[in-house]
Amino acid sequence: MALTTVWFALIAVLWCGYFLLEGFDFGVGLLLPVLGRDERERRLLINTIGPVWDGNEVWLLVAGGATFAAFPEWYATLFSGFYLPLLLILVALILRGLAFEYRGKIDSPQWRRRWDAAIIGGSLVPSILWGVAFANIVRGVPLNAQHEYTGTLLTLLNPYALLGGLTTLSLFALHGAVFLALKTDGEIRHRAGALAWRLTAPAVALAAAFLLWTQLTHHDAWGWALSAAAAAALLAAVPAVRARREGWAFVATGATLVLAVAALFVTLFPDVMPTTLAGGASLTVTNASSSPYTLKVMTWVAACFTPVVLGYQSWSYWVFRRRLRVEHIPAAHQ
């Protein structure tokens, strides 16, 4: 197998991991004003992801770095054509990270409310824009013969991309609600489970519409298979959520995100960014890649360090595996 194909697959794996892990982080942030009725409950919700959220973002950093090194032409075109959406995502992620670190620095309800708004907004914006971005990559964008993006921001806000944004938003919210039901105990656990049940219907409807639209447009056999598997995983989550079997529900929603992202990458291959212009030129794994020597060096580096990263992150999840209750959170001055 050519190293270009290997690295395309590895980048797909990194994005699958990012959506799986950061997906429930975003979901917790989205549900903060819904499930957090007082300060102790909001702190409890934040503490469920407190030890792991920054580690989950490593997957995004590695995915971006791998794209830059393995497919520099893809990286350049992507970050120039999608500049404003990606900038908004970056700003949102920075504000969310600052909010986690600073909301408890001053004992003031007004101070905490402002940072809570940053957590909510910092979760909402990426939840929508990641779906919009990936939908446009799969759909294709106007690239000329020099692989330069010739569209505008409105070009990216087409119906298919907006459906993609709503799909990721609904799936992240469901994934986050299931995670909270799995990670907490007591009243919060019951409320999160009930909310997860209410979120299943819109998540199933939006995901089914998006995956069906994608495959009817591209007619890829492997894409159809993975989309069907993603749909089956999401449907399996429904009875698990209903029965309050949080572990199986979390596995099902996680599998849905992984399989859906895999379906998009399989449908995209061998392109990395197709063009919609008649006289344009698509970016492929061949014409967008680095030199064979660069890819070979990257492969050795990845083989050495990937097990270390996976081992450390698995260990951190194991250490912080216990459920949390409101009683574990000391009372704060209001």
Score class of each variant (00 low, 15 high):
residue 9 A to W: 00
residue 10 L to A: 04
residue 13 V to R: 07
residue 14 L to R: 10
residue 17 G to H: 03
residue 19 F to A: 08
residue 21 L to K: 05
residue 22 E to G: 06
residue 32 L to M: 06
residue 33 P to G: 09
residue 34 V to I: 13
residue 35 L to M: 14
residue 40 R to K: 11
residue 44 L to F: 11
residue 46 I to G: 06
residue 48 T to C: 03
residue 51 P to D: 05
residue 52 V to C: 03
residue 56 N to I: 01
residue 56 N to W: 14
residue 57 E to H: 09
residue 60 L to M: 10
residue 62 V to F: 11
residue 70 A to E: 03
residue 71 F to R: 05
residue 75 Y to K: 12
residue 75 Y to S: 06
residue 77 T to Y: 04
residue 77 T to G: 01
residue 86 L to Q: 02
residue 88 L to N: 03
residue 93 L to C: 09
residue 95 L to W: 00
residue 95 L to H: 12
residue 101 E to N: 02
residue 101 E to T: 14
residue 102 Y to S: 00
residue 103 R to L: 07
residue 103 R to C: 01
residue 105 K to H: 11
residue 105 K to V: 13
residue 106 I to M: 08
residue 107 D to H: 09
residue 109 P to K: 14
residue 110 Q to T: 13
residue 110 Q to C: 15
residue 111 W to T: 15
residue 111 W to Y: 13
residue 112 R to W: 00
residue 113 R to V: 12
residue 116 D to W: 13
residue 122 G to T: 08
residue 128 I to N: 00
residue 129 L to M: 12
residue 129 L to A: 05
residue 131 G to S: 05
residue 132 V to Q: 00
residue 135 A to T: 00
residue 136 N to V: 01
residue 144 N to D: 07
residue 147 H to D: 05
residue 153 L to G: 09
residue 156 L to T: 14
residue 157 L to H: 05
residue 160 Y to K: 15
residue 167 T to D: 06
residue 171 L to A: 10
residue 173 A to L: 05
residue 174 L to Y: 04
residue 178 V to Y: 03
residue 182 L to S: 02
residue 184 T to W: 01
residue 185 D to Q: 06
residue 185 D to G: 12
residue 187 E to R: 15
residue 188 I to G: 07
residue 189 R to D: 07
residue 190 H to I: 15
residue 191 R to E: 13
residue 192 A to C: 10
residue 193 G to H: 11
residue 196 A to L: 05
residue 201 A to W: 14
residue 202 P to T: 10
residue 203 A to K: 12
residue 206 L to S: 13
residue 208 A to N: 03
residue 218 H to S: 02
residue 219 H to N: 15
residue 224 W to M: 08
residue 224 W to L: 00
residue 230 A to W: 06
residue 235 L to M: 13
residue 235 L to G: 12
residue 238 V to K: 15
residue 238 V to G: 10
residue 242 R to P: 00
residue 245 R to W: 08
residue 252 A to R: 05
residue 258 V to Q: 01
residue 263 A to H: 00
residue 268 L to Y: 11
residue 268 L to V: 06
residue 269 F to A: 13
residue 270 P to V: 12
residue 279 G to P: 13
residue 283 L to M: 01
residue 284 T to F: 11
residue 288 A to R: 07
residue 292 P to R: 07
residue 292 P to D: 02
residue 294 T to M: 09
residue 300 W to K: 14
residue 308 V to F: 06
residue 313 Q to I: 10
residue 314 S to Q: 07
residue 320 F to R: 08
residue 330 P to C: 04
residue 331 A to P: 15
residue 333 H to G: 15
residue 333 H to R: 10
